[in-house]
Simulated assay, not measured.
Amino acid sequence: MSQWLALVIAMIAVCAVVLSVVVLRTRRITEDDDPSETPDVIEYMVMMIGVVYAIVLGLAIAGVWEGRSGAQADVLAEAQALHEVSARVQVYPADVRDRIRADVTAYAEFVSDKEWPYMKKHGELSPKGTALLDTIRKDVAQYDPKSDLGAQAYQPLVDEVAAVDQARASRGQSAGATMPGMVWFGLITGALVTVGLIFTLQIRRSPKELLLAGLFSALIAFLLFLIWDMDAPFGGGLSVSADAIKDLVLRR
C-alpha cells in the first residue's frame, strides 16, 4: 500500500468517524435542549486550525532553512579543503606543485561557473566535476615524496582531498528539492482550509475586514513561496552561491 493511499484512507476514516458521532449525538438531543447555552465552537475551531497550521508552517520554514544552512556549510568546507590542498603543495617540487594547483583551479572554475547551473537544472552533480576531482585525487595520491618535508605533507594532502570529496557528496545530496510531496500536500491543503475558514466567520465588506482578509491570504501565500524558494538550496532566489569557492580558491 502506497503512502498516498494510506493517507487518503486515514483521512476518510477519521472524517467518517467524526461525522458519525456528530449525527448520532444530534439524534439523541431532546426537545428541551437549549443551543444558546452551548458555547459556539466555530470561532474556537478556526482559532485552533490557524494555530496548528502556523506551527506546521514554522516547522517547514525551519526545515528548509536548516537545509540551506547545511548546504552553505558544505560549500564552505569544500572551498576550505581546496584552499588547503593548494597551500600544502608548496613543499612539493615545482612541476608537481604547479600541476596539482592547476587541477584545483580547473575544478574550482568548473564548479563555480558550470556545475552550479547544472545543479539548478538537473538537481544533481555533474559527471565532469566528479572527473576533475578524481584528477586531483590521482595527482595527489600517486606522487611519491622524496624529501622528509614532502613526506610529512603527503598524508594531510590526502586527507584534504578526502574532505573535498565528502563536502562535494553532501552538496550533491542537497542539490535537489528536499521537501517531500506529502508535506507539500499538507501545506497547500492546510492553506486552503485556513483561508477558507475566513468565510465561516461571516466576513462582511467593511474596509477593515477586507484588508485583514487580504493581508492574511497574502501572508500565507508569501510563506508558502518562501518555503518553495528555499526548498532547493542551489536552485531558488535565495540559493547558496559559489562565492566561497571563488574567494578561497580562485582569488588567492
Rank of each mutant, 00 (worst) to 15 (best):
S174F: 12
R251E: 06
A213V: 03
R99P: 02
V111E: 09
S126R: 11
Y118V: 11
V183A: 07
E78T: 06
M119T: 05
M182T: 03
Y143H: 10
G196F: 08
Y92A: 04
D34F: 04
Q202A: 13
D74T: 01
R25H: 11
K128Q: 15
E37P: 00
P156M: 12
P117M: 14
A108R: 11
V89P: 05
E31K: 15
L187K: 01
P180M: 00
V51A: 08
S86E: 13
L76V: 09
S69R: 10
K128I: 13
Q202S: 13
I203P: 01
P207H: 09
D34W: 02
E109R: 15
G58K: 02
T26K: 15
D159G: 15
K246S: 10
A191H: 00
K208T: 15
R88L: 15
V111P: 04
A106K: 01
R137L: 10
D103C: 08
G50C: 04
D165F: 11
D33K: 06
R99K: 07
Y53V: 02
D165P: 06
T178D: 05
G150A: 12
T189N: 01
A232E: 09
L5T: 14
I55Y: 04
V56G: 04
G196Q: 08
V161F: 09
E37F: 09
A108N: 10
R168W: 09
P127S: 03
S86F: 11
F185A: 13
R205A: 15
K208C: 10
A175F: 00
T38V: 07
A151E: 11
A62V: 00
L223T: 03
Q72S: 12
A60R: 00
I203W: 08
V75F: 10
G172K: 07
K138C: 06
S112K: 12
V158E: 08
L24N: 09
R88A: 11
W65P: 03
Q152W: 14
V8F: 12
A62D: 02
W4Y: 10
I188T: 03
M230Y: 07
L5H: 13
V23S: 11
P180H: 06
Y92I: 03
G172C: 06
A141R: 11
V164R: 00
K208G: 12
D165C: 09
A221F: 03
R99D: 08
V96S: 03
Y143K: 03
F199T: 09
L248R: 14
A106P: 01
E124H: 05
A106I: 00
T130R: 15
L210S: 11
L24F: 08
S241M: 13
A141M: 09
T130K: 13
E66M: 10
A10E: 10
Q166S: 15
A177I: 07
D98L: 10
V104A: 07
K114Y: 15
L157N: 14
D95C: 06
M182E: 03
V41L: 13
E124K: 09
V195D: 06
M182G: 03
R171A: 11
D231W: 02
V183Q: 04
G235H: 00
A77K: 04
G70V: 06
M182R: 01
G129D: 11
K138R: 12
